[in-house]
Nucleic acid binder design. Sequence first.
DNA 1: ACCGTCGTCTACCAGATGGTAGACACAGCG
DNA 2: CGCTGTGTCTACCATCTGGTAGACGACGGT
Lengths: 206, 206
Amino acid sequence: MSDTEASPEVDARTTHDRLLDAALESFGTKGYDATSLDQLANELGVRKQTILYYHPSKVALLDAVIDRSATELTDALEDAAARSGGGFDRIEAIVRSVFRLAVRRPELLGLLREVTRLGPPASNRILDVFEPMIERATGFLASEMDAGHLRRCDARLLLVSVYSTIVGVATEVEVLRAVGIEPSLRSAAQRRREVIEFLRAALVPD
Amino acid sequence: MSDTEASPEVDARTTHDRLLDAALESFGTKGYDATSLDQLANELGVRKQTILYYHPSKVALLDAVIDRSATELTDALEDAAARSGGGFDRIEAIVRSVFRLAVRRPELLGLLREVTRLGPPASNRILDVFEPMIERATGFLASEMDAGHLRRCDARLLLVSVYSTIVGVATEVEVLRAVGIEPSLRSAAQRRREVIEFLRAALVPD
DNA sequence: ACCGTCGTCTACCAGATGGTAGACACAGCG
DNA sequence: CGCTGTGTCTACCATCTGGTAGACGACGGT
């Protein structure tokens, strides 16, 4: 706990953190299968065995990356939710925070996609962290419907719809290219605005 | 063209078609990287070299699968659009046909996802086939907005939003599991209904 | 009867992949 | 000084990967 005790740990964590960052980057953009330990090691200027020293296998590394990213994601979303008001205002705050992530940490959302694609056991791992937040989100939606702030419908399905819409518009680069939109900061801001209006129209009654 | 000329072609096409089906299935569900030619060959009861006889490389096989699937997808959607009326009715028809695909040919939508994930050159290949349809879709949306049948907004971004929502709700099995929905025919029908209402609220003015 | 083509096969191969075993340097500590 | 633990390395390895070379049988046309 003292400084002299901590300093070797700091050195260790520096390398280890670089590894986790690089792994997140690669898993989140190229995908798990398309990432090899050798290539990851090269990027770090290190041998593959150094990776396997910290994490005994490739899936163990993936698990570690998932755990780290899951808490970062939930923290960002919980934070946005906490700062926001009620009703549609909170949904707008969530959308904004997802777009901020899409611009600043695209690998995080990429990893989320990749993990849902891989299915169990990876998806179960991220689900464990997300579940409480999902629970609270559906609760929030349901109570806002009761209060008449949101159009009434199945809260769980609404959550999936909103998730798909936001994450899709924020991250699906190739689909954007398909309709002739080159990703940029300006286009991201416009997409954010449009998706918020889209959701407002879909969700707010009257 | 005669029967005697056609029958050997029929034999040939039977094997070749089985290959394309198996490749589509595997690329669309497990992903391109996670699919190996050996394993594909085993499923077919055939040696890897037979695959490479029909398609000289793995990417060539992917290209062939993409081409075949792209036309099947566009055919299904164009057909749904052609049978439908105007305004939101057409959008509803599209949603229904996507859900029908999600139930009956989930690999097709899975491949679509996989291809947009892989990026160019694969995504360009599918884009070539989709582009005219995308062009007509944005034109349709724009003209329906002009006619006052749809809420006014950026047509291209609207298309991306709708695409993300539909395909997400129709295919993201793990996300559905996350909110406690086990995929089934009945749940698919409910999801379809809810997503249609969601889109109707978002798109139809007044 | 012969030839060419088509589909499939066996036999290989070079390279990459995830992973094991073990040596070496270096630090803190008794 | 020597012991011990930590981080990194070299050296290997079995397996799998996409891909090449070439043989073999079946079959239709001439």
